[in-house]
Amino acid sequence: MDEYEVTARFNIAETCATSISIDDVCTWAGVGPGAIFPPSRRLVYGSIRGSDALRKNLAAIYNNDSNNNNSATPVSGRGLLKENNFLITNGAIGANFAVFYSLIGKGDHVICHHPTYQQLYSVPKSLGARVDLWRTSAEDGWELDLDQLKKMIRSETKMVVLNNPQNPTGKVITKSVFESVIEIAREHGLYVFVDEVYRPLFHGILPSDPEYPPPAVHWDYDRIVSTGSMSKAYSLAGIRVGWIVSRSLEIVEACAEARDYTMISVSQLDDQLATIAMGSDCNQKIIERNIKLAQKNLAILDDFVQNHVGKCEYVKSRAGTTAFIRFFRDGKPVDDVAFCKAAHAYGAFMVPGNHCFADGADFRGYVRIGYVCATEELEAGLKALEDFIQKEYESLPLAV
């Protein structure tokens, strides 16, 4: 991404739902630009843990998301989430780091859902933990194998790491599978850490579906912690606001102590814009817009895949913003790095899957595409990809 993104003509590798502006937020929230940040306000650090207003808005979103799901198991005797269950961070990347730094150390064992965002297994490894990847495959629909999880648990296992919805596949961990993971973790006293940065961008499963997953912290288990962000589902990556949420105030306090080593507070301007965007007048409009965009664009991507049967295949994404597509020739995977470099020359920027996600797995020929960009950019990027396939695909090297 660092090497090629700046020079890309059509960025179909982007993992954020296409970005919105301050004007968009103000329009949907029904406020003027002055509401974002009055020019007379002094630019002090602001609220260290995030403003009460932002954390209350987040609590309302999580409580509604949990309570409106009729299929979800009620949280027994725990009540609603409150602002002190949330800690505001510098994006989800800062949230994830704080969770690992707080809860994981040398000699611990971590089990991480795979494939996924590299931070989720590289950071605990850097802290001295042993990390085993809980691998999934396209052949099994990227489904988690619960029996495999049971076999992976050791005496020193401390945490199971999940990503829901999943990057890069767009897989949804369903309610029943999620519940089973939590019960296994409860039996062994393990932390369950869930990166929910793409939540609630579920565009292939409805909240009325019995398998629609509620937020991770919906369940009554003290060792669950999750993270979220304004970047992906809420289209505001530029404000760098993320959060940690747990029903355990002990976990929140531990993360707050760790966070003190990396930041004091998020910008007051960012906090205020996030507060307005996550208010009841605005956040639903953002999600509705992005779900419609995801559904429209995924149909375009799916047409592309169906029009190239014999050259590519995938397990269709159900959530989030990314799809993991396997390209092959004569039944053999192409070199995904060569594929992406050659396609980039035609204007289509994508991420090579085996190069970026494999970590011992075989993702040769896989390419990650971010399809919730502006529709025009996706169409232009796929047109450039089509031109490349017609002219140079047959000369591409195969993966070794």
Rank of each mutant, 00 (worst) to 15 (best):
Q118I: 13
K56T: 12
A343P: 15
G320I: 08
V372H: 08
A319P: 00
A323Y: 01
S122M: 10
K158C: 01
I239E: 02
G310T: 05
V177L: 06
D260E: 14
E379W: 01
Q268C: 08
V99R: 01
R41V: 15
G46L: 06
S248L: 00
W134Y: 03
W219R: 09
A237F: 02
L87R: 01
F363C: 07
P215A: 08
T262S: 15
H113S: 06
I104Q: 06
Q284R: 12
L133T: 09
N167A: 14
I325D: 07
K56D: 15
L43H: 09
K391S: 15
S66M: 14
V337A: 13
T321W: 07
K151C: 11
P397Q: 05
A53L: 14
G141W: 11
R247K: 04
A342Y: 01
S226C: 13
K82P: 02
I104P: 09
V351N: 14
V99M: 06
C356N: 14
G50A: 10
D52G: 12
N11D: 15
Y45M: 13
A319C: 02
F328W: 11
C340P: 08
R130C: 05
V181Q: 09
G228S: 13
I389L: 15
H308F: 10
D362E: 12
L87M: 05
K296A: 14
K332V: 13
G347R: 04
T322K: 06
E143V: 08
Y346T: 07
Q268V: 12
S235N: 11
C282P: 07
T27L: 10
P124D: 01
K332T: 09
R49L: 11
V75Q: 03
C255H: 00
G91P: 04
L396S: 04
G238L: 02
N307W: 03
N96L: 14
D140W: 01
T136W: 03
A348E: 10
A338R: 10
A59E: 09
G204Y: 00
S76Q: 10
A380C: 13
W142L: 00
C255E: 02
I286M: 05
D303F: 08
L120Q: 10
N69E: 00
H355C: 07
R368D: 12
S19T: 13
I244L: 03
D302E: 12
A17V: 05
H203E: 03
S71G: 15
D387N: 12
Y101K: 14
R199V: 07
Y45W: 11
N283M: 04
A319E: 00
P213C: 03
L103M: 05
H218S: 15
S66L: 12
T73G: 06
H203M: 04
H113Y: 13
Y121E: 02
Q295W: 00
